[in-house]
Simulated scan of single mutants.
Amino acid sequence: MSVEVKIGIENSPRELSLTSKDDADKVYKTVTTALASGDGVLELTDEKGSRVLVPAAKIAYVEVGSAESRRVGFGAA
């Protein structure tokens, strides 16, 4: 199951959004480890294998949610 991750970055009007193949618990653990180190770097990998690196000191917020739950269109229930 994939999860959608949204990262708010200080002094940036847009958030960084990606879909990760990892489960939510693993993403939470990765984020908390990066934030605990203070001067560390948050490293996540998206569905396509691209790595995303964000300086932990610049992270304003991280939102983790299920990517499967979003349905758009006329058939959405």
Rank of each mutant, 00 (worst) to 15 (best):
M1R: 15
S2A: 11
S2P: 13
S2K: 10
V3T: 11
V3H: 12
V3W: 06
V5F: 09
K6P: 07
I7H: 09
I7Y: 05
I7R: 11
G8S: 09
I9R: 13
I9V: 12
I9Q: 07
E10R: 13
N11E: 06
S12W: 12
P13A: 10
P13G: 11
E15L: 11
E15H: 11
L16Q: 05
S17C: 09
L18W: 03
T19V: 11
S20T: 09
D22H: 15
D23N: 14
D23K: 15
A24D: 13
A24R: 15
D25F: 15
D25Y: 12
V27D: 01
V27R: 03
Y28I: 15
K29E: 11
T30H: 12
V31Y: 04
T32P: 14
T32E: 11
T32V: 11
T33R: 15
A34P: 03
A34L: 10
A34C: 11
L35G: 01
L35N: 02
A36D: 05
S37I: 04
S37H: 06
G38H: 01
G40W: 02
G40E: 00
G40I: 01
G40N: 02
V41M: 14
V41W: 13
E43P: 13
E43T: 14
L44V: 01
L44N: 09
L44W: 03
T45Y: 01
T45N: 05
D46E: 04
E47Y: 14
E47D: 11
E47P: 14
G49D: 01
G49E: 03
S50L: 12
R51A: 12
V52Q: 01
L53Y: 12
V54F: 01
V54L: 08
P55V: 03
P55L: 09
A56Y: 00
A56W: 01
A57R: 13
K58T: 12
K58G: 08
I59H: 08
A60W: 02
A60H: 09
A60G: 06
Y61E: 09
V62A: 10
E63S: 15
E63C: 14
V64A: 10
S66A: 14
S66P: 13
A67W: 00
E68S: 00
S69F: 05
S69P: 05
R70A: 03
R71S: 07
V72P: 04
V72N: 09
V72C: 03
G73A: 00
G73L: 00
F74I: 05
G75C: 01
G75R: 00
